[in-house]
Design a protein around this nucleic acid. Structure first.
Lengths: 236, 236
DNA sequence: CAAAAAAGTTGTTCTGAATCAATTGTTAAC
DNA sequence: GTTAACAATTGATTCAGAACAACTTTTTTG
């Protein structure tokens, strides 16, 4: 039998302890961990499944055990804007706990993803009881905030070249955790990260390749000249 | 003697108790309040003074007692992007506590502003001790997050008309708290809120006026037809 | 209060990047 | 394994909005 599949169905204490290894949950007292445990389910999202859908009711928070997803904003129905790649040990839909009760963005699995769903009341309760846990959550929010501010800056002050350079540098930095990251993404995905059209993306990539900044082979993309790319990113 | 000035200089317990009325601090235990009290100063920022400067070292957090400021991103040196109006009882530069140690945005006083500066360690300590306080801080972060996501959506999916409509509706919604809000802002300020050029702003406002959506008199601006403006905002 | 600086206004020109259209390569489905 | 749907590519066309230039009005300041 398939071990992964079994694990999803038969959930035991030892699985739980294993799963809750994530640093973020280590600081919980036993009774607090029990609150989380009691109100969680583990779910397997298949590649291309939506983890969250912008606008949908959100009664729970997602915590990625393993797998990768992309978080994006939906707009006019034609074009999306990709905000980030969600990695293991990260939360999705935290805002649901603290203000909105709908998800304010969508996310979709790039690979199969093992995910905890935790009821939002459980998280709220633990946050209120455990200041250190709360502090950790705030840190995450804070980073997201900083990232969003950078996003706004990029959209406001940079044009195509700079944005695409940013996108490539960002995705490249994820290769530590997921070497095949570029194979998971289409030209349209890259376009949606940079906030430009797919056609412009293709033209830009060709240009970057011709200028010896990157190397395109098969579906993979390698950065050849980091310095120049960083300079393009910096100059906008 | 000037009463306001005296208050800045001569700080007494009764002043403190008065100042710490802000709902956000009500939930602190006496000893926690003392931690905040011990590491704070009260400062008067004059109109046009910078409360925070993007990139500058941040060892403290600001809490607005009264007065209004605008928060903005600096870019190419020519154009800024205005993120929001900061109102009494709001924090500025919270991120400094939890991740960055530089301010990631600038802010400037639109009116004279009475402000607490609280050392970031004090806030960090209280957050860790008091889950309810932490919960409150998270809520604020969460709202800012939602606002930033909407900002990104606006920049990505709307064009001039929609963005200006948004800007006007946002600023108009502040009239409850500050009726003269529009008199505090120049055309360039409105432009920087909408993320468009000053010239385009002037042309748009004239158009909106001609179409009976708004009324311009002196430096003030009144929304005449909310429904149409909301429709323009919605359609982008 | 005069002069200089800054803010607001208006029409014209210019440009970055989207859109369109047409084609080729690739993957999925029957 | 052939056809149909989808992803990638390329060049030509179009457009929203910035940049520019020239002018007026308002505000600041010596």
């Amino acid at each position: 039998m398939n071990h992964k599949y079994m694990k999803t169905i038969l959930e035991t204490d030892s699985d739980f302890i294993c799963d809750i290894q994530a640093p973020c949950f280590q600081m919980l007292l036993p009774e607090e961990a029990e609150v989380v445990r009691a109100s969680k389910t583990q779910v397997l999202f298949r590649k291309d499944d939506n983890l969250t859908k912008q606008g949908a009711f959100a009664s729970y928070v997602l915590f990625i055990i393993d797998g990768f997803a992309k978080q994006y904003l939906e707009g006019d129905g034609i074009k999306n804007y990709n905000l980030r790649i969600i990695k293991p040990s990260e939360f999705v839909g935290l805002s649901a706990v603290f203000s909105e009760n709908t998800f304010n963005y969508s996310s979709v699995a790039l690979t199969d993803c093992h995910v905890f769903l935790v009821e939002k009341e459980a998280i709220a309760k633990v946050v209120k009881q455990n200041g250190m846990f709360a502090f950790n959550i705030i840190k995450r929010y804070c980073e997201q905030n900083t990232n969003l501010l950078n996003t706004v800056r990029n959209l406001m002050y940079k044009q195509m070249n700079g944005r695409m350079a940013d996108t490539l540098l960002y995705l490249d930095s994820l290769k530590n955790e997921k070497a095949e990251i570029f194979q998971l993404l289409s030209r349209k995905d890259l376009a949606d990260f940079a906030g430009i059209s797919t056609e412009s993306t293709v033209k830009l990539l060709k240009m970057f390749e011709k200028d010896g900044l990157i190397a395109l082979k098969e579906k993979d993309l390698k950065i050849v000249n980091y310095d120049s790319l960083r300079e393009i990113s910096r100059r906008g």
